[in-house]
Design a binder for these strands. Sequence first.
DNA 1: CAAGGTGGTCTCTTTTCGAGACTGACGCTA
DNA 2: TAGCGTCAGTCTCGAAAAGAGACCACCTTG
Lengths: 168, 168
Amino acid sequence: MRYEQLADLPCSITRPLVVLGDRWTLLILKEAFAGVRRFNAFQGNLGIPRSRLQDRLGRLVDHGILVRQQAVDGDHAEYRLSRKGHDLYPILMAIKDWGDAHMAPDGPPVHYRHRDCAGEARVTLACDCCGERMTAHDVLPEAGPGLLAQVDAGAKGTESLVEQPAYE
Amino acid sequence: MRYEQLADLPCSITRPLVVLGDRWTLLILKEAFAGVRRFNAFQGNLGIPRSRLQDRLGRLVDHGILVRQQAVDGDHAEYRLSRKGHDLYPILMAIKDWGDAHMAPDGPPVHYRHRDCAGEARVTLACDCCGERMTAHDVLPEAGPGLLAQVDAGAKGTESLVEQPAYE
DNA sequence: CAAGGTGGTCTCTTTTCGAGACTGACGCTA
DNA sequence: TAGCGTCAGTCTCGAAAAGAGACCACCTTG
């Protein structure tokens, strides 16, 4: 049970990971972005045990990442990405970029192309102020409002995060 | 054993996820980017069981994501990010952006600031040709060389990926 | 009515995880 | 040199999660 409590930490990387960080969840979402909506399709494409899929879909619905509804053209259930779920796309694309760079010796298995031109979708990390591209070396963590709110509320275990050392 | 075989699929999202997609791995890497290098520091910061940490660090070293070496200023072991590991940073930042947007009611706990100005690090998905920003709706998957190589080699289970439906 | 597809449940076995004690190497210091 | 603290790493054992696959109720369609 202690693992779930990581979600209480004031960290915007840790909190999503408690929801998304297991064997299947991101794979399910990848399928959802590929247009899959039905239970049996998820199950067949991934080979995930049915009970496991049931559990994961339920959690994603609970978190508002997927929405379960009846299909308009039939009686069957559908799982569709909510806005919140849709916003996960850059995460999958960042994974894709890394996979293409480091785990695709024969080249990218799939090109994710811009509909309007021949270009490929790529994730970039940049400064939202000056627009310059950034790497981990250019980043300096600094306490934000979400952390200060917890400190003010007397939460424990937050001190170390305030003094987070910069990545060298 | 079937889960690990997903890594054989020609998909640059699936393959990294088989390596990175469990409770702890990305959390360990998050710590590594925060400057953590020592076994006990990972263990203490995350509360991960020692045997689990041992296993995960070993896997990351095996995959060339971390490098284990003796510290220059002492006898203890150090785990440092390799180039390959360093390249994972956009994934963590994409998760951070989503966490800030959807799981941080009090605002971002931590600002990841550009060293050179006051701006914040943000991940964007854009076309590498025309530079236009993209969402999942703008993407059209298309078979690439890594997939065709497997098809030519007579691999099974690749057909469905070629005909991957576009995200609606 | 039978066949086949749907999402979903149940059971049983195997695997993984978690907690914490334990080890052995090393350095410091009294 | 004996004692102590710290380091990474190992072992054990009970608990939790995952996996495989049968099973269910419901609905179409022939």
